[in-house]
């Protein structure tokens, strides 16, 4: 028998649940839900089509993108500074940075945004100008998002720093570098490889997080959608417009993230 064994066909074990079975159930459920929504007489697809490329919506997309990149920029600069402070041997600096992260990570983003928006209640004037003229809804949104994001990015960047072996800093010091030069030339370039994947994720979170500024009329995509359905009562249709745009933006961001990661690993 042994000498014919190698001629026999091999039959692989299947998983307990059949792919076809699971697939059929999924298609049925999702299809039914989708159809129900799609054919609902209460949802006017023509409204979705009409507003998807309407000027206020496109402007809102623009504001959302500007807010996202500006938030990332503020978060990165401030976050890197905070990460360095947390690494510092000066206890005052490291405590201040840790305190910042504790506070701005601990308070809900929407609370922070509403606070900056209402800054004039605390300080009616800033210098010569009335606070409301300086802190526009856009600036209030940017402050809320940026300061909050910095707390998260500080932790991510600090993690990146920790991933670079301490010994390399020792080696840099022995060839006569100062600690600051060693951080710039040895630690930063290497920590970027650890930071980048997390950063892609964070970018997507910020992108969606900007929708919170609609509570102060920040002028982003969500704000515009709300303004439009406030007038025509097509709530679901406008939410679908917003959903479509967020998914488009997130999809593009995800593809960008893949490229960045491949570049960082190479």
């Amino acid at each position: 028998m042994l000498d014919t064994l190698h001629t026999l066909e091999v039959v692989r074990r299947r998983g307990i649940v059949s792919r076809w079975g699971v697939g059929a159930v999924l298609v049925a459920v999702v299809g039914w839900l989708g159809c129900t929504v799609a054919v609902s007489p209460n949802l006017e697809w023509t409204v979705v089509g009409r507003y998807f490329l309407a000027t206020p919506v496109i402007e809102g997309v623009g504001v959302t993108l500007v807010l996202t990149f500006a938030t990332l920029g503020i978060g990165l600069v401030l976050g890197a500074a905070l990460a360095m402070m947390m690494q510092s041997r000066n206890p005052v600096l490291s405590a201040a940075a840790s305190g910042y992260v504790w506070f701005f990570r601990g308070v809900p983003l929407v609370v922070q945004i509403v606070f900056w928006f209402n800054l004039s209640l605390l300080f009616p004037t800033l210098g010569f100008a009335p606070t409301n003229q300086v802190v526009t809804p856009f600036l209030a949104a940017l402050l809320g998002l940026g300061l909050h994001e910095a707390a998260y990015l500080a932790e991510i960047i600090r993690g990146g720093f920790l991933a670079v072996p301490r010994g390399q800093v020792d080696a840099a010091l022995t060839i006569g570098m100062t600690r600051a030069t060693a951080t710039r030339t040895i630690v930063l370039p290497q920590s970027i490889r650890v930071i980048l994947p997390a950063l892609g994720n964070q970018f997507i979170l910020i992108l969606k997080g900007t929708s919170l500024v609609s509570v102060i009329g920040g002028g982003d995509l969500m704000t515009r959608a709300q303004q439009i359905y406030g007038q025509n009562y097509q709530v679901i249709a406008l939410l679908l417009v917003a959903t479509g745009w967020y998914l488009v933006l997130v999809t593009v961001a995800s593809i960008g993230q893949r490229f960045l990661e491949r570049w960082a690993v190479a």
């Binding site: 010994g167 020792d170 080696a171 010091l173 022995t174 006569g176």
Partner: peptide, 24 residues
């Protein structure tokens, strides 16, 4: 100062057990 320490330090080369090459 850190700068002066660094200046003195570079007169002494050091080789580590774990090599500690800059891996990038």
């Amino acid at each position: 100062s850190e700068r002066d320490v660094a200046r003195t330090r570079r007169r002494m080369g050091m080789v580590f057990q774990q090599f500690n090459l800059f891996s990038h």
